[in-house]
Design a protein around this nucleic acid. Structure first.
Lengths: 344, 344
DNA sequence: TTGTAAGCGTTATCAA
DNA sequence: TTGATAACGCTTACAA
């Protein structure tokens, strides 16, 4: 194996010491311009590449950050990761992505794996399962910055970047009301997670603010799968007084609901309007495009990465945890737009 | 900061040396059973965690492998990554995922980044652009195993795990012929990539084998975007003698084609049948579900990871590059299944 | 401005 | 079976 060039090789060739070479390479001020240029030129000539492992061992940093997401094949999370990459690559960091598949064991396991891999920080969106705080405490003990995005937990001292789910939900529900809908059902999700709790609350408040009757029977807790959406829609359609609109906290359940509604012969949006959440690409591509709430995931990723950079630089000084909240945008499409407003 | 426990701490507490502790922890045979148990118990008690960085520095390995994919938000690549994870996590490796977004600069940049991060190997699916062989040569010079999956390049000494695209294509085309289609168009893609060349060739051969006329005008090269599918379908429908079926090398272009066909008032599959490739989840979820070719991505990932493990263990001994080819499966759905065969 | 030397946490080699 | 020591490649006081 062709040995890699080290700073010793450069030092030897130039009759200097490794220390000087190291300084020259790192643009340390305590060095002459001439030496610096000579060293840097020689480094290029000899194909020198820094051994990041050694630097990491010495500095205690790995220049890797871990990103933990429930899954990476959703457009939302993939886009957040993209945003994180955009911000972190230029700073010399690498991004290790792990998926939890919403399983608590995997979530805990991933955190431990990443810690073991010496990541300099963890950016994560927590899973549905109620991961114990214990593991997060061990993170702060080790002084590994933890930043939540999208799905957070309230842990003191931990920063987060989320969207205003409450407002997104409020906007979506208000839109349905303005389209003339009177009995709006809500497909909720594990409300021990803030995002789903807030989506529920925003929905509820919009109903109340507009003088409609809030009916708890129209709120169903399910989870983000197409098949679940079908199942739940079936339940709703069987009610004595079925809804004339469904606002889902997930695009996937919205899709399932749409399939079921159409199959039972109802028209969308005329009979029943549907709105989803997340603005997954398929909501745009469907024959019946789906109204949804966009969460600006790239922006979310970039913001989370910036917070990480601040915290990792802050070292031992007291942390000022930030709670950044982005504003969502309602994208109106066919599934809820009644062109003739006679329905009102 | 609470200092991490090192083997020195354990050694000190037990009046041993770090070397002995290291041996005990690594189940080195040259140690007494008693010491081993004592050390291991103490390690647990003191919350010892191995510093993988130091181990990496010493061994020259990082226990990280890099995975490069065009994008991670397609079900296909996400599933391959899942397969790789399943195989590699138990062996103590971590997986660093990078996306190229089909840009050559990013592809080259990612490889260099990963090398700089000291990955022990790279598993990749190459991008559409014609990445220069130079970068791959530098990989083999550094003795970093490179394994291609799905989208490969023929480089001597490099292993690959692919599916039999030729056969998948052949099956899909044959299926359309059996459904009574006579003029089958093919949406191709950059044929400098083997997968798309093979899908083209399988299609062509099936046409010829079944006595149909092969018409080069029915083959259109495009790229994997929904909007492209629409555009290309428009072209095809404008032909003097339009096709009665479209076999697309991508589910995304198939989807676009379907949108356009329906918009122009044709019926699917009666007037025009459509088959895609990759078995993305949306092909199943659409109101009009789409026939597609499944590529068993998880299996592909696992196989690729296994090849990596073999190569990384082989050390300096001569490599025996493997070319593993998996068999695809045709999943027939509504977009091509004519229930009444009167069309024949 | 440059050199010396210690140290980051391991593992491997040699000696005891 | 265990201990002492060097080495992996780099950074950084401290000394010159």
């Amino acid at each position: 194996m062709k040995k890699k060039t080290t700073i010793y090789d450069i030092a030897e060739k130039l009759n200097l010491t490794a220390a000087t070479v190291s300084r020259a390479l790192n643009n340390n001020p305590k060095i002459s311009e001439k030496t610096r240029e000579l060293v840097q030129a020689t480094a290029i000539e000899m194909n020198y590449e820094q051994n990041t492992l050694a630097r990491a061992l010495k500095s205690g940093k790995s220049f890797n950050v871990g990103v933990i997401v429930p899954r990476m094949d959703s457009n939302f999370f993939a886009s957040v990761i993209r945003g994180i990459e955009e911000e972190l690559y230029p700073k010399g960091y690498h991004v290790i992505v792990c998926q939890t598949h919403d399983q608590e064991e995997l979530e805990t396991g991933n955190i431990m794996s990443l810690l073991n891999a010496q990541v300099d920080g963890i950016l994560m969106s927590i899973s549905n399962s109620k991961t114990k705080n214990k593991i997060f405490n061990s993170l702060s003990q080790k002084r590994v910055p933890l930043i939540f995005f999208d799905r957070k937990k309230d842990i003191s001292g931990v920063s987060s970047v989320t969207i205003d789910d409450y407002n997104g939900s409020y906007l979506a529900t208000k839109h349905l009301i303005e389209q003339g809908c009177k009995r709006i059902a809500h497909l909720s999700n594990d409300r021990s997670l803030e995002i789903f709790k807030n989506r529920y609350l925003g929905y509820k408040q919009a109903i109340i603010d507009h003088g409609l009757e809030f009916d708890e029977d129209l709120v169903i807790e399910t989870f983000s799968k197409v098949a679940e959406g079908r199942k739940v829609a079936k339940q709703l359609l069987n009610l004595a007084s079925p809804p004339d609109a469904i606002f889902s906290s997930s695009d996937f359940t919205a899709l399932g609901a749409i399939q079921e509604i159409k199959e039972q012969g109802f028209k969308i949006p005329e009979d029943i309007s549907v709105v989803g959440f997340s603005n997954e690409p398929f909501t745009r591509f469907m024959e019946l495009s789906i109204t949804s709430v966009d969460q600006s995931p790239i922006e979310m990723g970039r913001k989370a990465a910036k917070v990480f950079l601040e915290e990792v630089d802050a070292k031992d000084s007291k942390k000022n945890p930030q709670q950044i909240v982005l504003q969502p945008e309602l994208i109106v499409r066919k599934s809820s737009l009644k062109t003739n407003l006679e329905a009102i």
